[in-house]
Computed example of a mutant assay.
Amino acid sequence: MPWWAQTLIGVTAALLLVWLALIAALLIAKPEKGLLREALRLLPDVLRLLRRLAGDRDLPRGVRVRLTLLLVYLAIPIDLIPDFIPVLGYADDAIIVTAVLRSVVRRAGLDAVRAHWPGTDDGFAAVCRLAGLTTPAPPSAT
């Protein structure tokens, strides 16, 4: 068998194994339905936030590239776990968005994310809670 065929088989097997491991991890972790429902309710604001952050030239290029890749991933109809699978279908998207948001906050700061947040203060607090971030006090009206 030629080397390229062996490589192709190996890569395919590795991707299949990683995909199965992801499904197993999601089945074991089973995100809470309440948190998932809250995440889906905030989806329009989160998508606007990601687009605004990706377009902000003041943020580091690596952050903007990550956000752009995330938006492309979310726009592509092919997912790691198909969306028609109850709970888990949307959980993979929520987990990836959460990981990228955490990465953006570590690199750009929570204030940059707050400055671009299009929704309410309660929505921002919910996004911070979902992403496991500490939320600063809301801006005071003076």
Rank of each mutant, 00 (worst) to 15 (best):
L16S: 11
D56I: 00
F124V: 09
L15I: 07
Y73L: 09
T68Q: 12
L22F: 05
G34E: 06
L50S: 10
E38V: 04
A99K: 14
D111T: 10
Y90L: 11
W117E: 04
L40H: 10
P44C: 04
G89C: 06
L71C: 09
R52G: 13
L16E: 01
R41E: 08
A108I: 08
T12D: 00
L26K: 05
R107T: 12
R66W: 02
K30C: 08
D93W: 12
V46T: 14
R64P: 02
L74W: 13
V18D: 05
L69C: 09
R64W: 05
R61N: 06
E32H: 12
I81V: 15
L53F: 04
F124Q: 11
A25F: 04
L50Q: 15
I85T: 10
T12P: 01
A91S: 15
I28W: 14
L26R: 12
A24P: 03
R64F: 02
R64A: 04
L71H: 09
P44G: 01
R114N: 03
L59K: 14
I28F: 10
I23C: 03
A54F: 01
I76F: 12
V87R: 15
L59R: 10
E38G: 04
A39I: 00
W117Q: 02
L43Y: 09
E38L: 11
A99N: 13
I78M: 13
F124A: 13
A24L: 13
G109V: 01
I28G: 06
A25P: 01
D79S: 15
D83Q: 15
W117K: 05
R37F: 05
R106D: 12
L8S: 03
I9T: 09
I23N: 02
V72F: 05
R64N: 05
R52M: 10
V11I: 07
A108V: 07
G34V: 03
A25H: 01
L27M: 11
L40V: 08
L50N: 13
P86W: 04
V65Q: 13
R41N: 07
L110H: 08
P77G: 10
